[in-house]
Design a protein around this nucleic acid. Sequence first.
RNA 1: GGUCCGUUCGUCUAGGGGUUAGGACAUCAGAUUUUCAUUCUGGUAACACGGGUUCGAUUCCCGUACGGACUACCA
Length: 510
Amino acid sequence: MKNVRVRFAPSPTGALHIGGVRTALYNFLLARQHGGTMILRIEDTDQNRFVPGAEEYILESLKWAGIEIDEGVGKGGPHAPYRQSERKPIYQKYAQQLIDQGKAYYAFDTEEELEAMRERLKSQHSSDQQYGSGTRMQMKNSLTLSESDVKSKIDSGEHYVIRLKVPPNEEIKLTDLIRGEVHVNSSQIDDKVLMKSDGMPTYHLANVVDDYLMKISHVIRGEEWLPSAPLHILLYKFLGWEKERPHFAHLPLLLKADGNGKLSKRDADKAGFPIFPLNWADPKTKEFSKGFRENGYLPEALLNFLAFLGWNPGTEQEIFSMKELIQVFSLDRISKHGARFDIHKAQWYNQQYLKKRSNEELTVFLYNSLKPENVICEAEKASKICEVLQERVTFPQDFWQQGKFFFIAPTSFDHQVISKKWNAETVKFLKTFVDCLNSTESTKVSEIKALLEKTSQATEIALGKIMQPLRVALTGESSGPDLMMTIEILGQKETISRITYALANFPVKI
RNA sequence: GGUCCGUUCGUCUAGGGGUUAGGACAUCAGAUUUUCAUUCUGGUAACACGGGUUCGAUUCCCGUACGGACUACCA
């Protein structure tokens, strides 16, 4: 493939949806694989839905995810501007061209009149309830009004839109890279508005014009665009750009985890997982949503997970770096059906990637959690804690969650273990063990192990009976990292203090 | 309602006219770890249904059912 030019074209109406991140990823992978260009275009033709901060949010999200933009908003390029609101005259020019050629027309119908038309058709049980070849001659437009009427309406500032004059009963063929051939009869397509009354183009005109002018080779977008793709094909034809028409690939949707339907923020909230890459505070609704980043997801894990939602390499490999994804990605291995969003798998990916991080990197995570807690920790201790916890964590914040007790003596203890296993034998063993600890000079794992064995022999109490109650005394929990390592990290003084506290306060089972 | 798209374990999916229908997540069991987690081993678990075509269909075709998208001067 030569000159691969793809675009990610979100509209700045809020936070970037996780499905959008996947769309951007697939575009990016194809571009990189073919040494092509990844373009970011902002589709802000709806001024009513514009949300301040959304564009910055999109930029920051892509940056965090490692999806690099070669050309477009925030980057510039030969086809600037890349914000559609700044390209208004361009669309007007092509709309005028279509009008001049009789392929589009002015329409003056009010909202109420349109509504009345739909109601009328509905009550007639008409199969086509749209503004099109069957109805356009009954409406108020430049096909039904005289030329002078049209001119005077426009001159007097009456609101109008420009509609595409879709020819009836024409077979439109679309070849989709993922779905194969799709046929639609043009009678099913309505006379879509191309230019709105505020002078802005609609998505349909803007995306076709821009894709052509920006020399886009592949349009990779969500399945929700499939029904309007034939309309876009028609536009390419009417504008005389059939030869330069890009390839289309309509991606399967991301579905909610349980039940049916498109994955929405509501469902994600309900299931307790994020749906936006980064934290987002909606300036309009004041609603706050936590992002994948802030929830502890590593970008490479999220991307790997996302890549596999609707695509797979056909091998049994599951873990792919961005570099590897670029190598093996292909559009023809994208599946046709929607994929349920299963957060468990995302968590598993995160765990896999976290385990691969070096001890130095993990230590940074731990320090980040320590800061807000006002806890100070020397480097060696931090390193040891991360080492001992590495196999047990899924998220960076787990280092603090699971390692809190290394810094703060527990105040609550697992009652079940205490009531079951804290008995006279435990007390006897631990008293002897404290004596041993008091006289030792080292709390290295090997020394602790020897000490425990020595105590076990002296008291004739099996070690297995002691491990759990000892752990609860030290950490408050019934499970945790290796006990000997825990004692080493805690150190002599702290270990003795915590056992002493337990001996004085735990009720002894008789 | 109409148009379009889809349907393999609970989930993501591989496969493809004759297979013990493969893998991963999740789940369950066993082993290891003197606990828990990790790790290892094993198990449960799927071709929506009905008709063709065929010696043979989960695979090809047609229907049905179910699901989804779209049906705005939103993208």
